[in-house]
């Protein structure tokens, strides 16, 4: 790739915007030294070229990648954009160049520098998403289940189908504090929308009871003779703890004077089956 003078590309941070970046880079036969999104504030040493997001160009790039690099290759690009790789745009651009040159076999060149780097970033993303399938903690308030997460990667698109299926008849939301967006679900449709900030509502009596029961269960189930904090830390990194009920120091592991569960079966049944007609506050 001829490198006529170093240049920085700046785009709006959207996926279509990024595809427009790819279009320009190919069209101008130009390799930017950096690709940054407009909300990044940073002093830079090179001239900046503003890339406008162009739906038409984006869809041409998409079609090109799909036909040359196969559906599989396209999926890697699409997912790669949700990773937290610090230079994901440059990495993806390198991957696309390679793929356009070599075709779909680029997906199998696992020992190649660029491909391996992308694979690792993807593994980090899908691995984190998989962990979140377990680590998301919902609180119930007013018939809606709500959760807050702080992932490194953009995991909501990967979590959406899973939780929509799991809680098919519920109304729920997950707020991603890192990427400032929210997954909203109501039977049987979900959306992911940008949201600046969201705080969980204060827990009611029932919610507090279940949190405590869970914490009590958590503390009981570990075998003291096998205590292994390092192993636990390895599986459940500390960064997750903040939003895990069982690790929350404010949740007491016991509430006195509790003879039974507050829910009777019918109420519970209504709650999990009839949200279709229930008025959810979403």
């Amino acid at each position: 790739m001829p490198d006529r003078g170093a240049v920085i590309y700046r785009y709006d941070g959207s996926f279509a915007g990024f595809l427009s970046v790819v279009f320009t880079s190919f069209e101008k036969k130009e390799q930017p030294v950096q690709i940054m999104s407009r909300d990044q504030i940073q002093t830079v040493l090179f001239p900046i070229k503003e890339i406008e997001t162009d739906k038409e160009k984006a869809s041409r790039v998409r079609a090109g990648i799909r036909s040359r690099m196969s559906e599989n290759g396209w999926q890697k690009v699409r997912l790669g954009f949700d990773t937290c790789h610090p230079e994901k745009e440059l990495l993806l651009l390198r991957f696309i160049r390679l793929g356009m040159r070599l075709g779909k076999r680029v997906c199998w060149m696992l020992a190649d520098d660029t491909v391996a780097e992308l694979e690792n970033a993807l593994k980090h993303l899908t691995g984190e998403a998989h962990q979140y399938k377990g680590f998301v903690r919902f609180s119930e308030a007013g018939g809606v289940l709500a959760a807050v997460i702080e992932p490194k990667n953009r995991v909501l698109p990967l979590l959406a189908p899973h939780f929509s299926d799991r809680y098919a008849n519920e109304a729920f939301l997950i707020f991603d504090k890192t990427n400032r967006e929210m997954l909203l679900y109501r039977p049987h449709r979900y959306v992911i929308i940008p949201v600046e900030n969201y705080e969980l509502p204060l827990p009611g009596t029932e919610e507090r009871l279940f949190r405590s029961l869970w914490k009590s269960y958590y503390e009981t189930i570990g075998i003291k003779e096998r205590e292994n904090p390092r192993c636990r830390m390895g599986h459940m990194q500390k960064r997750y703890w903040k939003h895990l009920t069982e690790m929350d120091p404010d949740v007491p592991p016991r509430i006195d004077g509790q003879d039974g569960l507050p829910t009777d079966g019918h109420k519970l049944k209504d709650r999990i089956q009839l949200t279709d007609t229930a008025d959810s506050s979403l």
């Binding site: 958590y218 075998i223 390092r230 599986h235």
Partner: peptide, 14 residues
């Protein structure tokens, strides 16, 4: 399978 938490002994709680 999905692990939902890890106990103090490092074992998965599912």
């Amino acid at each position: 399978g999905i692990c939902h938490s890890f106990a103090s002994d490092g074992r998965c709680i599912s």
